[in-house]
Design a protein around this nucleic acid. Structure first.
Lengths: 121, 121
DNA sequence: TTTATACTTCGCCAATCAACGAAATATAGG
DNA sequence: CCTATATTTCGTTGATTGGCGAAGTATAAA
């Protein structure tokens, strides 16, 4: 029950839903996610921690940067099935479509360049 | 986004998850659910309202009693798919198994008898 | 080795939410 | 019609949660 409740609670926030959908095309680093959501980095870190505890994202460190990605799809776990449900349920949503457009631009900038230009990091 | 968030927020409470699984075998009336959860009836009513707003349950009035049930399965809606996920994810859970045993006894008592014996109603 | 950097954790605050009892409501039963 | 009843709504309270800036941490870079 604990793990299912961790998942459902993790999904009960709009920003965290947006992150999950944003990670569909591939991993992002914390500074990109921070830029994407427009929140304080400490807040983003907390959100990612909640998602990670629920098994909805996985993190890896590369150099100075921390990347997060979705778990292996088709894993048959509750978490991966929940993510599939989220992605399908929000596929036509307007906010998510706008997010997608902005993300394309964001993915073209390296974390290094992003951090140089911004006080994000 | 609003409707998906309504669903995920509705699922982010243990008692509401238990109600959804309890309704799998068939509808229950408010007083049965109240007895089942062991909460105040006003609290149960509020929980059911949240579930109803999210499209996760449907209500019907019969005489003095208000019954709630799950929406038609296989409807392909986000709500019905979410319920499927919940039921599958919690199918082996201990609390839910214990719930199931208690529910069998509870379903054998009519709402009328339940209300007579108890201050539930 | 020291300094810089990306990220995490902590502490605080305001908003939201689950629980309860009381009041209100709709309607069944006498 | 009046009374009883099952349920819903309201108001209050304590707990939880999302947001922020500051402090702490791990480690890359100089």
């Amino acid at each position: 029950m604990r793990s299912v409740l961790n998942i459902t609670k993790a999904l009960a926030d709009e920003n965290r839903l947006r992150v999950l959908v944003a990670l569909q095309p591939g991993e992002l680093c914390v500074c990109q996610i921070t830029e994407f959501l427009g929140l304080a980095m400490s807040t983003v870190s907390k959100h990612l921690s909640i998602l990670s505890q629920a098994g909805l994202v996985e993190g890896r460190k590369q150099g100075r940067w921390m990347y997060y990605r979705l778990p292996e799809p088709g894993g048959g776990t509750e978490a991966s099935e929940a993510i599939t449900w989220v992605a399908r349920s929000l596929s036509g949503n307007r906010q998510i479509l706008e997010d997608g457009a902005r993300l394309k631009a964001l993915r073209r900038v390296t974390p290094n360049d992003l951090c140089r230009k911004r006080k994000t990091c």
